[in-house]
Amino acid sequence: MELNLEQIPREKTLSKKEFLHKYFKPQKPVVIEHFIEDWPAYSKWDFDYIKEIAGNKTVPLYDDRPVRHDEGFNEPHAKMKMRDYVDLLKREPTKYRIFLWNVLKEVPMLQKDFKYPDFGLRLMKGLPMLFFGGSDSHTFMHYDIDLANIFHFHFEGKKQCILFPQSETKFLYKIPHSLITREDIDFANPDLEKWPALKHAKGHVAQLEHGNLLYIPEGYWHHMKYMTPGFSMSLRAIPRKPRNFGKAIYNIFFMRHFDNLMRKMKGQKWIDWKNERAVIRTHRLLVEKWR
């Protein structure tokens, strides 16, 4: 038995009016296949180009090890020169990923290669972020702290994206006081006997290739798996729904700091308690659903 995932709709291209009517207002994801072919990035951005212009930069790397109490928020697991990291990606599979690498701050000349699309949303122009990964590396299932609308542009290789709306959170084994699900769930190939609530979650899936744009509606859970080495860039717009905006404020100004404080006070016991509560809460809701 597999996850209940429907293919994300694919469009060749979309006007602003079509995007707002068909996808933004109903908050539905979409893949736009040919939207950026007039960007210089479409023909220029590959590993060799990144290595050439950013090879000297030291980059933060993350793998798929579970969260530990003594690690800070988004603290990297390793660091490496970009040229060495690109060589590693091209040479062999690796779990090391780069995420939230600020293009404007790190390599300002890259901003000449792309445009901020006009989809009728005000994009946060100071926050274009790059993400890199090797074959079979993946993110944990998570949603972003600010519940932003995300425009995710993919370059090089292939990437699988699994999405769930916030309405499915009750089935996903969400960790309390956190933005992730249980880290021992492989959403690309889940054990549905061990994690039975996942059978009831209704989500979306798409495979991205070079030049594809994925719109991720605000607050959507997402799991990204690199089928081959590749990289992506995300542009963001603040959530428009008052409930999501309120959640974002709570996450940024309270939840994150509360969680860090509890890690310092209780150590690994806090992490273990949260992991246990994720299962207890999810299975309790599952029982109530079938009463």
Rank of each mutant, 00 (worst) to 15 (best):
E11G: 05
K22V: 03
P26H: 01
V31P: 08
V31K: 09
F35D: 01
E37W: 03
W39L: 01
P40I: 00
Y42V: 07
K44C: 02
Y49N: 00
G55N: 01
T58L: 14
V59A: 10
V59Y: 10
P66T: 07
D70K: 01
E71L: 14
P76K: 01
H77N: 07
K81H: 12
M82F: 15
V86M: 00
L88M: 14
L89P: 02
I98V: 05
P108Y: 05
Y116L: 14
L121G: 07
L130E: 00
F131D: 00
G133P: 03
S135W: 03
D136G: 08
S137N: 08
H154Y: 06
K170A: 09
E183F: 03
I185Y: 05
I185K: 06
P190G: 09
E193V: 11
K194M: 13
K194P: 04
P196K: 12
A197L: 08
K199C: 06
H200P: 04
H200C: 10
A201H: 04
N212Y: 14
Y215Q: 03
H223W: 15
P229S: 07
G230V: 06
S234M: 11
P239Q: 11
R240W: 02
R243V: 14
N244R: 13
F245D: 06
N251I: 00
F253M: 09
H257W: 15
D259V: 03
G267M: 04
K269A: 11
R281S: 12
R284I: 10
W290P: 06
